[in-house]
């Protein structure tokens, strides 16, 4: 069982994540968008959306630190266990809370504003449900595991997670982790599997290139994509 939950399932999800994005980009470049609903309503969006997005960016960086960087490294550069803990909990809780409040505003808005609600697809609803679960569980873990209990995820979850990418498998570490962490891990994996089929794909088009490209883009006429025919050759074959 723990083999399935902590080895097979993550691999299935991550594979879906990668292959799914590839497929979606090939099949549905036109649908690759944020599907912004700002046009319909922007009083709630103006508060909720930045709160959520900046919050989740901070949460993401926190995960890179917590999951990606081994404990020995931070200790090597002299960050003590206590300091790390304090930073992780305070910044993490703050960012997580901002994300949660932002998300609550956005979901409330989506539900109560007629036009926004009718522009919500089934995929959106499923995605919101999973995303909200992941965020709530994450926040609960931060609070419970770090303030009330004391589970050091950097010696458990993190090692397991890094191991997935190096085929250095540690299902037993997850099997021992508290239930909150187990659920957070599983739902997050499920979210990754869902990712390429939702509007979350817009994360991968974060327009950082804008900072360096020239303001005005010139492009030549693109013949192939307009009609369904390739251009005719410009010469005639001679039959003799």
């Amino acid at each position: 069982m723990s083999q399935f939950l902590w080895v097979v399932f993550p691999y299935i999800c991550l594979t879906t994540f990668v292959v799914g994005h590839f497929w979606r980009y090939r099949y549905d470049k036109f649908g690759w968008t944020t599907r912004s609903s700002q046009l319909y309503e922007d009083r709630l969006l103006r508060i909720g959306s930045p709160l959520f997005h900046f919050g989740i960016l901070a949460v993401f960086l926190g995960h890179v630190m917590g999951l990606g960087v081994p404990k020995s490294w931070t200790e090597a550069v002299g960050i003590s266990e206590g300091l790390y803990h304090f930073m992780a909990v305070s910044i993490g809780a703050f960012a997580g809370f901002a994300t949660l409040v932002g998300m609550a505003i956005l979901i409330y808005r989506r539900r109560t504003n007629g036009p926004v609600f009718s522009a919500t697809t089934k995929m959106d609803k499923a995605m919101y449900l999973v995303l909200a679960t992941v965020i709530v569980l994450g926040l609960v873990n931060t609070v419970i595991a770090n303030i009330i209990g004391h589970y050091d995820y950097r010696e458990g979850v993190s090692v397991w997670f890094r191991g997935i990418f190096f085929f250095d498998l540690h299902p037993e570490l997850m099997a021992e982790a508290p239930l909150g962490f187990q659920l957070h891990g599983l739902t997050a994996m499920f979210l990754f599997a869902l990712w390429p089929f939702t509007r979350l794909v817009h994360v991968f088009s974060a327009p950082v290139g804008y900072l360096t490209r020239p303001y005005i883009v010139y492009r030549s006429r693109d013949y192939q994509e307009l009609g369904s025919h390739r251009p005719r050759r410009g010469w005639e074959r001679i039959n003799r």
Binding site: T33, S205, Y210, V217, Y218, R219, S220
Partner: peptide, 25 residues
């Protein structure tokens, strides 16, 4: 931000590449 809007170099018509637009508004 995505560089989806371009000016055609042949005739100066300004177009939105629908495949590159990501809806940043």
């Amino acid at each position: 931000p995505s560089g989806a809007i371009y000016k055609r170099s042949e005739d100066g018509i300004v177009l939105v590449d629908q495949d590159r637009c990501r809806g940043w508004r």
